[in-house]
Write a protein that binds this DNA or RNA. Sequence first.
DNA 1: AAATAAATCACCCGATTGGGTAATTATTGG
DNA 2: CCAATAATTACCCAATCGGGTGATTTATTT
Lengths: 226, 226
Amino acid sequence: MSSIKYAKIRLSIVDSCLLTRISLKHILSTFDIIEKIKDFENADNFIASLKSSHIPDIVLMSMDLNGINGIEATKLIKKEFPKVKVIILSSNKDKEYFIASMYEGANAFVQKSIDHEQLMKIIKAVHFGAYWIGPDHINLYKEAFPKPDSYDLQNLYKKQASSFDLTVREKQVLKLLVEGKSNSEIAKEIIISTNTAKAHVGNILNKMHVTDRVQAAVIAVKSNII
Amino acid sequence: MSSIKYAKIRLSIVDSCLLTRISLKHILSTFDIIEKIKDFENADNFIASLKSSHIPDIVLMSMDLNGINGIEATKLIKKEFPKVKVIILSSNKDKEYFIASMYEGANAFVQKSIDHEQLMKIIKAVHFGAYWIGPDHINLYKEAFPKPDSYDLQNLYKKQASSFDLTVREKQVLKLLVEGKSNSEIAKEIIISTNTAKAHVGNILNKMHVTDRVQAAVIAVKSNII
DNA sequence: AAATAAATCACCCGATTGGGTAATTATTGG
DNA sequence: CCAATAATTACCCAATCGGGTGATTTATTT
């Protein structure tokens, strides 16, 4: 069987609870893919250690920590040591924890309730470059990406503005309208008369099938017609 | 060494190009983790095959196909057969392809330029449940998630509405305002007088530090104060 | 050359808005 | 219990808005 060779993995563990650190270290050290494991009781110490020398491939980072928490730690780590993969371990599956962790570039968001074999698989997948998102968060993950406007590969995210057939000038006016400018302010900005600005806005409302500028602005913002 | 055991993987390949299908099938079949490989020249045939019987664990789906494309196919597959993992193979690294694929629930978005060993690793990681996002798209991935408003675990996504200190009633009015309703329509909707609606709107404008309802609506939409 | 569309401006009119000021009634937190 | 806040309404006023209708100029297309 053509088995995949994994390079040895240098691991660090950051958790405020000593017993957790000891246990995790013990059980993970039985996998000889793991080269060495260092542990830290808080993120500050861990980050300080990165600066002095030993940079691990992966860090298992608990969410609740004394000092800076797992999310902020992820941000700092990814900023200065982007090669370090971060696996967030959370006992809380609060979706906001997940979303914020992902925003900061975490490679995995893992419930502490999983067993060590699963964790090991996740560590390997992450080491290879994968992201791991638990079943509880898959929907959030999907929703994080915008829905395509069509399934035509050429027009996946074709702005709806063009489907409204707004002219160049009208898009320009719409943009100012979205900024909350009045007709006369719009007029001043692009050097036309207030009457013309008014005419443009009227045409925009017609084309967008709405009856007032607030609706036009909301649709413009929601559908990214900048 | 405590090696991870992978269950055999049933694979399908969907690509319009016969040569690609043959070559891929040939090279992947040298990995005996792969149980059997079926191939299809378009997504319609593949999806039809799912309905008749043989459901694979993973499908390698080309983006450009005759008939429905890889993205739409992903949508249909995930809707009816959510257990099937979809790996999108694209020769084009257009970010819109990536984003749309991810929205539809693809498990990996892979450039066709990778080699078979890497592909195999990705297949394994995906089979376990991981997501794989290539280095070209990591930034897009990060940006897909909203930035936290703070690093306090209790207030990661505290809506800015509360920083505007809008009352419950005001938020209710703001919501209707965002829908493009006039003061009198708002009044009818929540059964208050037009004067009261007007007063609420005035207070909202003050609290949000804007001078007209369009700006309030735009800020509300952009900052998710629904 | 003719037709079409985009951009420009004017004038009218009734409805709506935003900014004040002021007052009444809960409700709630010290 | 008292002060503060929220929610309610009224009235006034100037400015703005949205809906018409109509007209001119300049490109672009046919």
